[in-house]
Amino acid sequence: MSRGLDNCNPGNIRQSKVRYKGEVRPSRDPAFKQFETPAWGYRAIFVLLDTYRIRHGLDTIRGMISRWAPPAENHTAIYIRAVAEAVGIPADRPLDTRDRTTMLRMAAAVSRVENGVAADMDEVAKGWELFASDARHSR
């Protein structure tokens, strides 16, 4: 099993001072966050991508993935292409991080690139419900 899936962190979100609901603390992984369930990990993906749009003005797949997976550490162009194809929209078209269909596809694509296997869409949907049910979208 991949590190991200083992950590219930399908987006491989790195350790930081930011705390998310459902995060396991302390994490047994020194580099990446761990979550209680995959759904909490998917929720964190939705929160982080929504934050990219709101706080950083990144409203395209290219903008979001360039921040998520910078070229210094990743094959960002390939990552962007894979996500855009999976979501079904051009990499430079603005997207709505509050649109369920778009974001389910995007989180599943991120998980696929990060972990090398198809996402469990039931868990992705559970993560969306956790995200959508929190009106404040707090971390």
Rank of each mutant, 00 (worst) to 15 (best):
P90E: 14
N9R: 01
Y42C: 09
S16W: 12
R136F: 06
R53C: 07
G11M: 03
M106S: 11
A125K: 06
A77T: 10
A135Y: 03
S138Y: 06
M64C: 10
D92I: 01
M121W: 12
A84I: 06
G88R: 06
A82D: 14
R105Y: 00
E129T: 13
H75L: 13
N12A: 11
G41T: 07
N9I: 11
E23V: 06
R67D: 02
S66K: 11
R136S: 15
D6C: 05
A44G: 12
I65T: 06
A39F: 04
A84G: 06
P71M: 02
N12I: 10
M121V: 12
A72Q: 14
H75S: 14
D92L: 00
V83L: 07
L5V: 08
I54N: 13
P70Y: 07
S16K: 09
V87G: 01
Q34E: 15
A86Q: 04
G127R: 05
D120H: 07
R100A: 11
D120Q: 06
G88S: 10
N12H: 04
M106A: 05
K33A: 12
H137L: 06
E73A: 14
A135F: 03
L49Y: 09
D120A: 02
V124P: 09
R28Y: 00
A82P: 00
D134R: 15
F32E: 04
E114D: 10
D120W: 00
D134S: 08
G11R: 03
L48C: 03
W68S: 02
K126C: 08
A119L: 03
R25H: 13
R55K: 15
T76K: 08
S133W: 00
K33F: 01
S2L: 07
E123P: 03
R100W: 00
